[in-house]
Nucleic acid binder design. Structure first.
Lengths: 235, 235
DNA sequence: AAGCAAAACCTGTCTGACAGGTTTGGGGGA
DNA sequence: TCCCCCAAACCTGTCAGACAGGTTTTGCTT
């Protein structure tokens, strides 16, 4: 069960399985090289076309990495593919923004707790710095969004659980597309400053290793964001 | 920014972008057909090989679906690809089981709350039924695992948030591979019955629309599972 | 109008070819 | 002897053409 059984019906599917098994059986680690297309096509008794399509499939899932001239290598985990899948789900009305926000709230509440407990001093400094940058960019939504995303990413990083980083990264693509809407629904300067201030306070709570306060602020942030989205008429 | 910018450097990357844009611009929904390989290769001025590799990439991410003889169609969201990515992360030591359990605990706690609030009567009945089946299979670990996974999947379904279903599904692949280990570390009949009983009680709490009790039981379940894993020497 | 069969269309796979980019091994120079 | 550099060997990216099935459309027959 697993990688080697997604598509037993086609040569490409079989090749994907064989390559995956190859990785697993030899315990290949990220960066390790795979056999060349020619060699694999000889060993699996299929054409290079089939091997190439199998490679492309695995590369799309970020299980391997391709580069021209070089051999394929085992890849590091990356949120790119997941981000695309989530975006696809939203664009095809299979997922809506509120559902994403509920998930984000759930995991970011946990993330901020872990971050407050496990963050290194360097991470704390970086998180505080990013919140400060947000304040400095109050007049430039595009920059502000960038620092906002970086803030949440840094928090996930500080949680020391790569799965949280992965998930936060996965939501980033669609967040980038909806963030401006949320910003526009905070018309007053006060509302906007409150939002940034919440981030600054949160950063300080993490730096002070105060998980309870950090969690409260994260809840506040999401309550406010969801309210803003509702105001914008996004049901 | 998004789908059309993953890989601007290659023809295949460009093709992936063009196909994604095609889906988005025409607001294609799951099931809708895409142009044929021949047509796309003509429109994009590339060989059919390139279009096929682009199709394979999108199919690997479950953004489109391929079938021999038929045209490619827009796909429904599916956890298959994510499951593979997570498995890859674990097998290459980029993620460990405890990190997965932390994430599962976090989201399943939320899921069970939502399920207790939003479940339909049919869903409640199904959840209770699955917990009952677990009890009936106490002597058959393989069957028991099957019903355990189905139980958590049904809970996610009842939360009425497809993102939770997606995430639970994503963890299922790796869970299937580690579940037996956890089971072996519950050597006494009492420990095993307790585990199943917790599920039964949880199902009842959901059926009784008692989110607080359901959450308590979910916490209990995960506490116990993590303890079992630690006992097994899985640090 | 319904049903059936051929034609048109489409995907899966193979072969062979060639343009670059990358790695490697050997030879020449210091 | 050791280091550097270059050419050969290797590898991936892309193309064109071909053919075996599977699927849809068309048009004829009943």
């Amino acid at each position: 069960m697993g990688l080697d059984q997604i598509n037993t019906a086609s040569l490409v599917g079989d090749a994907i399985g064989a390559i995956s098994r190859h990785i697993r059986e030899r315990d290949l680690m990220p960066g390790d090289k795979l056999p060349s297309e020619a060699l694999l096509s000889k060993e699996l008794n299929v054409s290079r076309t089939v091997v190439r399509e199998a490679f492309r499939s695995l590369a799309a899932m970020r299980i391997i990495e391709l580069a021209t001239g070089k051999r394929a290598t085992v890849a590091q985990i990356d949120h790119g593919a997941m981000s695309l899948m989530i975006e696809h789900g939203v664009h095809t009305d299979q997922i809506n923004i509120h559902q994403i926000y509920d998930v984000r709230r759930t995991i970011e509440t946990r993330i901020v707790t872990l971050a407050a407990i496990r963050r290194t001093d360097e991470e704390a400094a970086e998180i505080v710095r990013l919140a400060g940058q947000m304040h400095a960019c109050l007049g430039d939504p595009c920059q502000l969004m960038k620092y906002d995303l970086a803030f949440h990413t840094a928090l996930a990083q500080a949680s020391r659980n790569p799965v949280y980083s992965l998930l936060i990264g996965s939501f980033q693509g669609i967040t980038r597309q909806t963030w401006p809407m949320g910003w526009k629904t905070r018309p007053t300067q006060a509302a906007r400053e409150l939002m940034v201030q919440t981030h600054i306070d949160m950063a300080r709570a993490v730096a002070a290793s105060d998980p309870l306060k950090a969690v409260d602020l994260m809840g506040l942030h999401f309550d406010e964001s969801v309210r803003a989205l509702l105001t914008a008429g996004m049901s």
